[in-house]
Design a protein around this nucleic acid. Structure first.
Lengths: 112, 112
DNA sequence: ACTATAGTTCGATATATGTCGAACTATAGT
DNA sequence: ACTATAGTTCGACATATATCGAACTATAGT
């Protein structure tokens, strides 16, 4: 368990964080651009407040907070205070990185 | 927790399974084609026996077995007996599906 | 039939996780 | 200063997980 590359550990942490349905729902909401009524651009990641993220989850605010801390710890999301709210978002490059993880060798395969 | 779409649950199960460093190492080994000395083709997924998969992990065979059961349950890997061995592999389309999950809206973003 | 090899199942145990409510901190508006 | 709103931190607790070794099943070769 301890003689792995840090890469594996880091990534396992990410997947563990995504391994809870509530957290995955939060992550998915943050990764979904072009929500109806939302203006969507390439540069700006979509942002949601903690309250918004917990809205349809039917769990206590303290639990939402806990889950967000896990997502932060794993490096999956970013957050920043804006007035009374804490805004959360996902760096687009993170999505690219995760997407690439699952096609490590698909390019190599194409070449053979 | 119970009023989510099955999709989210199913996928969370997958990520939970990948959230353990040992299982992620196993998964990575199975998803890695073109290992030195290996012939790699587009059609055939690479196969490893249970023993091979546990080789560098330094955990008991029973633990390897447990982890493989988790990966199977999550639908991440396939397995089949071949003589004394159980061979494991990953369906390439699963990797595509997982890769796509993280770029749900990147195409939409490109279009705006 | 016996033996060796490859994996699995089972029970035990220590540790991690998800959840809550209550009490707390931080900001904004009056 | 007071109040309301937005989140967080802190125990507590029930449940899930990772791990092991021992005992088991399955196959192949002799």
């Amino acid at each position: 368990m301890s003689n792995y590359s840090n890469d594996i550990h880091k990534r396992a942490e990410m997947f563990k964080a995504l391994g809870n349905p509530h957290r995955l729902a939060i992550f998915q909401r943050l990764s979904t651009c072009c929500v109806p009524g939302t203006i969507c651009s390439v540069e700006d990641a979509i942002r949601f407040t903690v309250g918004e993220l917990g809205e349809d989850l039917e769990i206590a605010p303290s639990t939402v907070s806990h889950h967000l801390k896990e997502l932060l710890r794993a490096g999956l999301i970013q957050s920043r205070r804006n007035g009374k709210n804490i805004e959360c978002w996902i760096e687009p490059q993170l999505l690219d990185q995760l997407s690439d993880f699952f096609k490590v060798n698909s390019d190599i395969k194409q070449m053979t």
